[in-house]
Design a protein around this nucleic acid. Structure first.
Lengths: 249, 249
DNA sequence: TACGTACGTTTACGTCGTATATGTACGACT
DNA sequence: AGTCGTACATATACGACGTAAACGTACGTA
């Protein structure tokens, strides 16, 4: 064992002891481990989400996440069956944050308005965690239906139940669910993609790296690149959703 | 990691041994290289696409692709700057196949019809290469605009030029382009996702693994799972596109 | 005091992408 | 003909990855 690690642990132990004193009856023992106390699935997932937000999806590895938690990589396997399960856990964390946002406001009157409410809340959560969007696109869909994380299934269930309770037929409900999911996911992907080539450059044209793009081959693309870089925002998300739902009502 | 069957590799090894024996020489001649002749970017990408179609995206590695071509992994670096470039190449191959499909039929009369034509052609190509869809979702969007593969930019350029020539303002063109891309990509993702838990099982309920899903927690999901498994097909793609374009016209 | 158990570590294996150095066959030029 | 530069493929190696298996270690309980 490395001495410096041991030293760090002792320091934590002291800190923990102080906390223990303050907390009173509730004692923590094995908790000196892992930099700020015992590991837990929640803590692992929360830290993983931080890492993804900071370094992107490819910046998340078991080893790095372990280091972030002050722990060896293998320690994580007690809280996630493997990397796949960890990614599913991230999706769940995302869905739970979404459910928190949804719970904060009252349900809408009719099912169309409720779908709008869900879509907009999802949009806001995705804005907070843009690097999660590609993961949603792949994890939400690549896993067999029955094996998807519970939180994901709960989202689907909510939409389907909403439509069912509104008296729509199963057939209609499935159609609407499909259109809703496709539009929402596609919009998030398109909206939150990174366009920047030189992310700090003030001039938009240079920031996008337009000088790398042959002007004569892509005249329209180049002319509208700066507009393309802009966001549609929640308004266009809502507008498209309205159009889709209107045509299916 | 993956319990893969190596029948093909063994066959290949046997073939090569025979070749060597017949030649009676220890040294390989240039004609033996690359199993069926010289490498080329096209051949590399075509084989990579085959591998992805067969084994999925995670089944594609430089080493495996090299083996598939009868070549060491490092040989590929002459035709792709790295794995990222190879993936971009795959996206390009996809776009080129799409352009081939598009060139086969005449352009539509108005821009709405032309967008439909493009969307449906994309849908057909995606059906031929379902494992490519997640790659499209990530590669199309994660790379900075100016660094995207030329074929991708050409696709965007085509749509933008189409809208421009139809007399629409840049603002409108960008809006429509965004909605078009989002809907198309989202629809492909939702439509081509793998739902099966036990592929090959004849009973749909078992095939989807519904017995793994708690019935009381997800009543609606379970009731409509079999419908969800079905496809919307090109009709719903077109219907949604109509709705979106109608609202933006 | 001894022990089972929950938790984290150590060690090791195989695979991955790829930098670097090393052949090797072919076309062009003496 | 022979020589050589160049294009092409290989050989070797390194660090990072996911993870299986064995191993410590400290706590709560008996």
């Amino acid at each position: 064992m490395l001495p410096e690690v041991k030293g760090a642990r002792e320091a934590e132990a002291a800190e923990m002891a102080k906390e223990k004193e303050a907390a009173g009856a509730e004692r923590r023992r094995a908790s000196d481990r892992g930099r700020y106390g015992r590991l837990s699935r929640e803590r692992v997932l929360a830290t993983a989400l931080e890492v993804v937000d900071r370094d992107g999806l490819s910046g998340l590895s078991m080893r790095k996440l372990g280091a972030e938690l002050g722990v060896e990589a293998m320690a994580l396997y007690r809280y996630a069956a493997g990397k796949g399960d960890l990614l599913d856990g991230l999706v769940e964390a995302f869905c739970q944050e979404l459910e928190g946002d949804l719970a904060a406001k009252p349900r809408a009157a009719d099912w169309q308005a409720e779908l709008h409410r869900i879509a907009l809340a999802t949009y806001r959560v995705a804005l907070r965690h843009p690097n999660m969007v590609p993961l949603l696109a792949t994890r939400l869909l690549s896993t067999p239906l029955a094996r998807r994380p519970a939180a994901v299934l709960r989202s689907d269930e909510r939409v389907l139940a909403l439509l069912h309770d509104a008296g729509l037929s199963d057939h209609r409900a499935v159609q609407i669910h499909r259109a809703f999911t496709a539009w929402l996911l596609g919009y998030l992907l398109v909206e939150l993609r990174a366009m920047d080539d030189e992310p700090g450059e003030p001039d938009p044209a240079f920031r996008l790296g337009l000088h790398r793009m042959p002007a004569q081959e892509f005249p329209r693309l180049r002319a509208t690149a700066i507009s393309l870089d802009g966001r549609g925002g929640p308004k266009q998300l809502a507008a498209g959703l309205d159009a889709l739902l209107g045509s299916l009502g």
